[in-house]
């Protein structure tokens, strides 16, 4: 019987996990253990709902509601001096509960603190663009759309950014295989030569251990290469590879190793 592979997550899986293995958890601290973060959280929670918050590896993580994101980012930028949106993207939890988790990584240069603002959206739901607050979100939201298919409302130019405009599929979804689907496999051939050329050019060779049986005869005989189809007897002459013909080349001096000077101190 063929082993069952789940279709909702086709990424690499650990092939063996101990039955009793319990992974440890990165320690999470209460927000009140850091006064700067505690004050920040106070300000945020006085205006918006905060679902969860903790400190993980020195950064505060705040879970909010999806509809509040524009307001929260405006608040932390204007009042809490988190002036830079360093990074934003999504995490695919479709296999677990059909949601995406969106995170915004913020930096305050005056307080030297970083916080991460997070929320979940349902599959197919759009997020609010924060491009008006942080111009950097312009490109990150496009990247998020490209990679996950999450659209941003009020975005001026919601198009793919990394993949070509006529690409199909969203590569970072867990359902998308690493080596691409059927469309990806033939993308360049279809585009340049047309579908009829598929037979001539042939499929991609994705097997890293692939060895062409007919090629390997010569490949394995380094220094004794023979033309394709030659019957190998075992007493072939060595084929010496030279970059110049024996008789020398018209008007070109041949490199003479003995006459050359080797500089061994690079810092001379």
């Amino acid at each position: 019987m063929r082993a069952y592979t789940p279709k909702d997550n086709v990424q690499a899986k650990a092939y063996y996990t101990d039955r009793f293995y319990v992974s440890p958890q990165v320690p999470r601290h209460d927000v009140s253990s850091d006064e700067v973060f505690a004050a920040d959280l106070e300000t945020i929670s006085s205006k918006f709902t905060v679902n969860e918050s903790y400190i993980e590896v020195g950064q505060m993580v705040v879970y909010i509601n999806a509809s509040d994101i524009y307001g929260v980012l405006e608040l932390v930028r204007d009042e809490l001096s988190y002036t830079q949106l360093t990074e934003m993207s999504a995490i695919d939890w479709l296999a677990k509960d059909n949601t995406f988790e969106i995170f915004y990584q913020m930096l305050s240069m005056t307080k030297r603190k970083r916080i991460r603002i997070k929320y979940s959206i349902q599959n197919g739901q759009a997020v609010d663009s924060v491009n008006k607050l942080f111009r950097s979100a312009d490109w990150s939201e496009r990247e998020m759309f490209d990679m996950f298919g999450i659209e941003a409302n009020n975005h001026p130019f919601m198009k793919r950014i990394l993949m070509p405009y006529d690409w199909q599929g969203h590569p970072l979804l867990k359902t998308y295989p690493l080596q691409g689907d059927e469309f990806a496999a033939w993308y360049e051939v279809d585009k340049i030569y047309g579908k009829e050329a598929r037979d001539i050019i042939g499929p991609e060779i994705r097997d890293t251990a692939n060895i062409d049986r007919y090629d390997s005869e010569r490949f394995a005989r380094l220094g004794f290469e023979q033309p394709k189809g030659t019957k190998i007897t075992g007493d072939e002459e060595p084929t010496v590879q030279t970059y110049q013909e024996d008789g020398g080349v018209f008007l070109i001096t041949k490199f003479d190793k003995d006459a050359s000077k080797i500089v061994d101190d690079p810092q001379r």
Binding site: Y15, V26, E56, V57, Q59, Q105
Partner: peptide, 14 residues
Amino acid sequence: TQGMRPPVGEVYVA
């Protein structure tokens, strides 16, 4: 062969 298994969690390091 199996790789290390870090704890469950998230980190952003710059």
